[in-house]
């Protein structure tokens, strides 16, 4: 079985996020580019930026607590499955088998924009 790709949010200082009434704007400082994004992109970014996950966990487990790892980097890394788990605690994503490839595609788009990085 292949090791799942892990993702990490760009440093908080790289991004300015402004929620408008219908879409979210993300200004990416390193490229000076403005991105207009809709759900679930802001939610994925939030999940990667705020989840207090500090250690790589086996796939299909929820976000861990009480991890034994030392000081984490600015944002911890997560696998697509972990992100899906985090999102599903706040949002109804429907069938996980359908949602998983959708989230995976969004993650790769966000990598291309520089909003998140592959760990």
């Amino acid at each position: 079985m292949t090791v799942p790709t892990r993702y990490r949010a760009a440093p908080a200082t790289d991004l300015i996020v402004r929620a408008l009434d219908d879409i979210t704007l993300i200004y990416h400082r390193p490229s000076s580019q403005t991105h207009m994004v809709a759900s679930p992109v802001p939610e994925i970014l939030d999940a990667l930026r705020t989840t207090p996950l500090t250690a790589p966990l086996p796939e299909r487990e929820g976000p861990g607590v009480g991890s034994e790892r030392s000081e984490p980097p600015a944002h911890a890394t997560q696998t697509p499955a972990q992100i899906l788990t985090t999102l599903s605690t706040h949002f109804d994503l429907g069938d996980p088998a359908t949602a998983r490839p959708v989230i995976a595609a969004h993650l790769e788009e966000m990598v291309a924009l520089g909003l998140i990085h592959r760990a």
Binding site: I16, L20, I23, L25, Y27, R29, S32, M36
Partner: peptide, 29 residues
């Protein structure tokens, strides 16, 4: 008109939005 459409139309209506960088983003939002 929703804020997203307003933002998009104003960036299109601005000749120096891109050149101004972050101060332009902050002012326009």
């Amino acid at each position: 008109v929703g804020q997203g459409e307003v933002f998009m139309r104003l960036t299109q209506a601005s000749t120096n939005y891109t050149a101004l960088g972050e101060p332009g983003f902050t002012a326009l939002t």
